[in-house]
């Protein structure tokens, strides 16, 4: 018991080091893929017939600057240490400013989307567990399968037509996955012998769910919460593009289309950091819970 705190601290430190290493490798991998993607270093403006040969040559030499991956990445990291993320070629703006401008929209989309998705998921999963009704379960499963079969971009298009915000589309993209997993976890916990014993003793359904089933299912649900953030980021990319929501997803898409190396590496780093931090938080909470139980 007394060595619980140092153990927890050690595990947090280890996770932070892992996150830093993975983000560095992810950034390098992204830079390498972009560098060797067809169309790297070209600029649409080269086709402007009004530009003189000198201007086209200047454009080409400017875009060829990022050609050496090792050189680029070294300078990128050095700039990062000084808080300078460089300049986005696509937008002719400092990347730090772009991230500052775009992050709130994505945070809002993902935040509301996750809150809504988890509310629907938990309500549906608890309702299914509480009702124990075959028809309701079939209905919920059918709805979840129908939503699961729709690509996120289609969900986004439906949201646009219905004049709903991108966060609704993110929620609808997450609900089927979250519901199926949560439903299984809760159903598994409902089948535990102590739950049967509680039922036999006449404990109310609500008390069983919230005092016995939920604590038992919480480690898996916490882990799922971490994963759901990754899923939300994944869904945000096509949804923000289709719904024209000015967030990081749309920014990443535009950067990818234009092969904007520094911008893509930055967006990859931010998304990788966010997902890893979310996973690490979920894992740390689980560790703490496990230690508590032990």
């Amino acid at each position: 018991m007394p060595d619980r705190a140092p153990r927890l601290l050690r595990s947090i430190c280890l996770r932070l080091v892992t996150i830093a290493a993975v983000v560095l490798v992810a950034g390098l991998a992204c830079a390498t893929m972009v560098r060797f993607a067809p169309g790297f270093g070209v600029d649409e403006r080269e086709l402007d017939p009004r530009l003189s040969a000198e201007s086209i040559a200047a454009l080409r030499s400017q875009n060829a600057g990022d050609g050496n991956i090792g050189h680029f990445y070294w300078h990128f990291l050095a700039g990062l240490l000084h808080g300078d993320l460089g300049q986005a070629r696509t937008f002719s703006q400092p990347i730090a400013q772009l991230m500052k401008d775009r992050a709130p929209a994505t945070a809002q989309n993902i935040g509301y989307g996750l809150a809504l998705a988890w509310s629907i998921t938990l309500a549906a999963a608890f309702a299914a567990a509480a009702l124990q009704n075959k028809a309701a379960e079939v209905l919920l499963s059918a709805a979840s399968i129908a939503l699961l079969s729709l690509p996120a971009a289609v969900v986004a298009l439906v949201a646009v037509i219905a004049r709903k915000p991108a966060s609704i589309a993110i929620a609808l993209a997450l609900v089927p996955v979250l519901y199926r997993y949560s439903r299984n976890v809760i159903a598994k916990n409902c089948a535990e012998p102590w739950i049967a014993a509680a039922r036999a003793r006449g404990v109310s359904k609500g008390r069983i769910l919230f005092c016995h089933v939920l604590p038992g299912a919480s480690p898996q649900l916490v882990a799922l919460a971490g994963v759901s953030l990754n899923m939300a980021f994944g869904a945000a990319l096509p949804i923000e593009v289709v719904a024209d929501s000015p967030g990081l997803g749309q920014l990443a898409w535009q950067a990818a289309l234009a092969r904007d190396l520094p911008l893509l590496v930055t967006v990859t780093g931010v998304v990788a950091t966010m997902t890893l931090v979310a996973n690490a938080c979920a894992a740390t909470v689980n560790d703490a819970l496990r230690m508590e139980h032990a």
Partner: peptide
């Protein structure tokens, strides 16, 4: 069909 940067690369490089 190619995305625009790839197309320009083929046309100009």
């Amino acid at each position: 069909t190619l995305d625009f940067p790839s197309l320009i690369e083929r046309m100009t490089r």
